[in-house]
Write a protein that binds this DNA or RNA. Structure first.
Length: 434
RNA sequence: GGAGAGAUGGCUGAGCGGUUUAAAGCGCACGCCUGGAAAGCGUGUGUACCUAAACAGUACCGGGGGUUCGAAUCCCUCUCUCUCCGCCA
């Protein structure tokens, strides 16, 4: 959520920043400003009435104590009307506040000044490459073919169980998935200093609002209902990412400055309706309704937010480096960035069987946008309460990593040579037919 | 699922319709005292809104609603915690 004070004081600046996203959100600023003004004028009216009422109520109390009931009664009737007016104004304030809040919650974050201004994903600058595209003496197979030949994924039975976009990992496929999760968690906890947490996989809607999925992207979420009790529908949602529960761990809290930076990593499955997304319903693992992911979250002081973003990206890159997978880092331009982000780097791993780069990590600094929504603050040294920067990054998403890994490591005979670092986790150096 | 008990400032804990502008203690900060410290004494110590700003005003005693001139206090409702019972991986 944007700071209403900033909108009030520098509306042109906010409009200009939002305009770089190219989604027309800058047009909503006038609406926010007029609701804000309405709210403040109502507030000053109702507050002076309340001050008046409080004063008279005290006088009534004093008169009662002095045994002067007649005078007290006179004052009561005087105040009754004030009370009615207060009730009415309070309702109006509430209404205006709700309206203002609703617009504010739908405004995206302002892109940081260092972000490339662009019109679409085509304008995303490539920041760097790591490694080279692997060369094959044969035409590399697609992960779909590899999975079927090696019995790693049973696509049709996955669809039988839950519909298209749901995967049934089988045998070595299931073991490889588990090995990867374990490897990622170990890497980030042992070498990068993150504290491992294992959150609930369903969250309240407040959490979805906190990290910015709601209200705007509610159509992408899976809502949970308890049995046939429809009144419970919409109370809990399947997490679209571990970012949601983990970033909300300290919602409504005031952290001590010494607690910062706080760094968490967590595994969770991620559930996404992918309503309207291209590629849903097609076979394979590139876009599915449920995938595994290890997520990294940092809560940091604003002044170190962008330094922390760089190390966050480096932590995610380490995954691919250790597995020996070729990748590139791109920066998302203003038009391509997510709703909550002020600056985002994507890491895309090379998938030889696809002949394309696949996004396996998205690392963002959301600045205080989410902290404000969840009212998470920290007490600075001078005693002031401030909103920290919240960063999130995939470290990394699993289904696509799985794809890149088996496509990159496939051998002439159709087997998969497991990277050395993963062998102790898989307890095998090779996945072959049979 | 059933029965009961609770939720009050950083913590403990009073208050159950009107100097409560939330007692008291602990903790914390500052000051006095001291060669220095402890003890002791004194002062202060929440969040947010509003305002150009304020030691001005308003709101906040788990959340929401109601009764009243006035609610931490009474009523309704929801959430959460604890104890016991049942069910259960």
């Amino acid at each position: 959520m944007l700071d209403i004070k900033v909108i009030r004081e520098k509306p042109d600046f906010v409009r200009q920043r939002l305009a770089t996203r190219g989604a027309g959100d800058e047009a909503k600023i006038d609406e926010v400003l007029s609701l804000d003004e309405k709210r403040r004028s109502l507030l000053s009216e109702v507050e002076s009435l309340k001050a008046q009422r409080n004063r008279i109520s005290k006088e009534i109390g004093a008169l009662m104590a002095q045994k002067k009931p007649a005078e007290a009664e006179a004052k009561k009737s005087e105040t009754r009307q004030i009370g009615d007016r207060i009730t009415q104004l309070d309702h109006e304030v509430q209404e205006v506040e709700r309206a203002r809040e609703s617009v504010l919650l739908r405004l995206p974050n302002m892109p940081h000044s260092s972000v490339a201004v662009g019109l679409s994903a085509a304008d995303n600058p490539i920041v760097r490459h790591w490694g080279n595209q692997p060369q094959f003496s044969f035409t590399p197979k697609s992960h779909i073919e590899l999975c079927e030949k090696l019995g790693l994924i049973d696509f049709s039975r996955g669809a039988k169980l839950s519909g298209s976009g749901f995967l049934l990992y089988t045998h070595w496929g299931a073991r490889l998935e588990r090995a990867l999760i374990q490897f990622l968690l170990d890497l980030h906890t042992s070498e990068h200093g993150y504290v491992e947490v294992s959150p609930p996989f369903v969250v309240k809607s407040e959490c979805m609002v906190g990290t910015g999925q709601f209200p705007k992207s509610i159509d992408q979420a899976y809502a949970v209902q308890e049995g046939e009790d429809t009144s419970t529908l919409g109370k809990l949602y399947l997490v679209p990412t571990a970012e949601t529960p983990v970033a909300n761990i300290h919602r409504e809290e005031i952290l001590k400055e010494t607690q910062l930076p706080t760094k968490y990593c967590a595994y969770s499955p991620c559930f996404r309706a992918e309503a309207g997304a291209a590629g849903v319903g097609t076979r394979g693992m590139i876009r599915v309704h449920q995938f595994d992911k290890v997520e990294l979250i940092k809560i940091v002081k604003p002044e170190s937010g962008y330094e922390e973003l760089e190390t966050l990206v480096a932590n995610a890159e380490a995954v691919l480096q250790k597995l020996g997978l070729h990748y590139r880092v791109i920066q998302l331009c203003t038009a391509d960035m997510g709703f909550t982000s002020a600056k985002t780097y994507d890491i895309e791993v090379w998938a030889p069987g696809q002949g394309q780069y696949l996004e396996v990590s998205s690392c963002s600094n959301c600045e205080d946008f989410q902290a404000r929504r969840m009212n998470l603050r920290y007490k600075a040294e001078n005693g002031e309460n401030r909103f920290p920067h919240i960063l999130n990054g995939s470290g990394t998403a699993l289904a696509r990593l799985f794809v890149a890994l088996i496509e990159t490591c496939q051998q002439t005979d159709g087997s998969i040579a497991i990277p050395e670092i993963l062998q102790p986790y898989l307890k095998s150096n090779r996945i072959a037919v049979g």
